[in-house]
Every structure is written in structure tokens, then in C-alpha cells.
């Protein structure tokens, strides 16, 4: 499987997702379903082209993999290529995937700290996954018809959990000076008073 094939499959996937999801989103809307599907297909395909830009940027800047072929073979192919005006080929799909993995790692995985300070990379990934999972649970709960209790209660608890995750880990309050936490918490009584007064007032 060469790169052209991979790119074609990538674009088809985008078009397919766009074509299926858009009519679903546009259901109950004053939009023609077929038109929505056509538009979704186009947007999905173009979106996937846009998503390819970082990959292309990375590939064009990534260092080339070592050529492990013997010198005589490499020279022969290069000479042949020069003679015929074509670039040397012979990179397998596995090597391409490897290049892709190396590219992703080099461009999107932060290096370890130079000083022996603890790096938070793993924590951040974990918090991100937790946020995504909680969001999915929230949306699923909101579809629950005939629940034995008011759905506002679990939804409030879950979104409070999300807020705490972001504030403690992404905003570093857990690692920073306690003073910043106090300054931030100082505003909460005012916020609660405003909420209470507005909710009770008629």
C-alpha cells in the first residue's frame, strides 16, 4: 500500500463521515437531506485535506531514515534515477508507517525535562481522557427519559468534577503556591451569592 492509496482512503473516510453525520445533524432542520449529505461529503473531504497539512509539514521537515541498503545498490538506483529523471523508490509501507510514527512523536510529544524536575506529560493525557469520558457520560445521561431523580443533580456533579480537573491540573493549582488557589477561591462566595439571589428573586 503506497502513500497515494493511504491518502485516497483518508479522503474517502472524511467524505463518508461527513456524508453520514451531516444529514443526521440536519434532521428536523429546514434543509434538504440530500443537499446536507452532499455538503457534508464535501466538507468532510476538504476537512481531511486540511488535517493532512500538519502531517505534510512534519514529513517535509523530518530527518530521512537511514538507508540500510548496500552502497553499490543505492548508488546504482540513484544513478538509474538520475538517468531517467525519477526519484529512487523502494520504500515499503512498513517503513512509511515508521516514518509517520517518528514524525508524530517528534512533532507532538514534548521532550523530557532537562533538569530532573518531574514531567507532567502522562498526567495531562490522563486528565484529557477523563474529561472526554465524563463529557460522553454527561451527554448520554441527558437522553435518559423517566429517570427516578432530577437529572440536574448528576449533571451538576459531573460538570463540577470536570471544572475541578481543569483547574487543578491544567491550571496547575495543585502544584502552584496555595496563594493562587486562595485568590481564585475568594471569588466563589460572591459567585454563589449572585447565583442564589438571581435564582430566588422573582
Amino acid at each position: 500500500m503506497d502513500s497515494t492509496m493511504l491518502i485516497t482512503i483518508w479522503l474517502m473516510t472524511g467524505a463518508l463521515i461527513g456524508g453520514v453525520v451531516t444529514p443526521v445533524l440536519a434532521a428536523n432542520k429546514a434543509v434538504n437531506g440530500w443537499l446536507a449529505m452532499l455538503g457534508g461529503t464535501l466538507v468532510g473531504m476538504v476537512g481531511n485535506v486540511v488535517l493532512l497539512v500538519p502531517v505534510w509539514l512534519g514529513l517535509s521537515r523530518a530527518p530521512a531514515l537511514d538507508d540500510r541498503r548496500p552502497a553499490w545498490q543505492r548508488d546504482a538506483i540513484t544513478l538509474e534515477g538520475v538517468r531517467q529523471g525519477a526519484a529512487p523508490t523502494g520504500v515499503t509501507a512498513g517503513e512509511q508507517m515508521q516514518t509517520l510514527a517518528v514524525m508524530l512523536r517528534e512533532n507532538f510529544w514534548p521532550a523530557a525535562r532537562a533538569d530532573r524536575e518531574h514531567s507532567h506529560r502522562g498526567t495531562y493525557v490522563g486528565v484529557f481522557v477523563a474529561l472526554a469520558v465524563i463529557t460522553a457520560i454527561e451527554v448520554a445521561i441527558s437522553f435518559w427519559e423517566g429517570a427516578p431523580f432530577n437529572l440536574a443533580i448528576p449533571l451538576s456533579i459531573l460538570s463540577a468534577a470536570k471544572v475541578m480537573l481543569v483547574v487543578l491540573f491544567f491550571m496547575h493549582l495543585r502544584y502552584d503556591s496555595r496563594w493562587y488557589s486562595w485568590i481564585f477561591a475568594f471569588s466563589l462566595p460572591f459567585a454563589i451569592i449572585v447565583l442564589a439571589v438571581l435564582a430566588v428573586a422573582d
Binding site: 525535562r113 495531562y124 463529557t135
Partner: peptide, 30 residues
């Protein structure tokens, strides 16, 4: 939209982590 914002928050912390270890390319990408 919510997912997009959460991913963007994640992108910012990864970028900060990268620049704190002087990894400027990863920082710029995120």
C-alpha cells in the same frame, strides 16, 4: 464544540510542557 475546546485545552498544556523542556517545534505545533 465542547470536545473541540477540551482538546484545545489539552493542546495548550502539551505546548507549555514542551516549551518548559525547550522543545520549540512541539510547542509551536501544539
Amino acid at each position: 464544540g465542547t470536545t473541540v475546546l477540551i482538546v484545545s485545552s489539552f493542546a495548550v498544556v502539551m505546548g507549555l510542557e514542551a516549551i518548559q523542556s525547550d522543545d520549540r517545534r512541539v510547542f509551536r505545533n501544539w
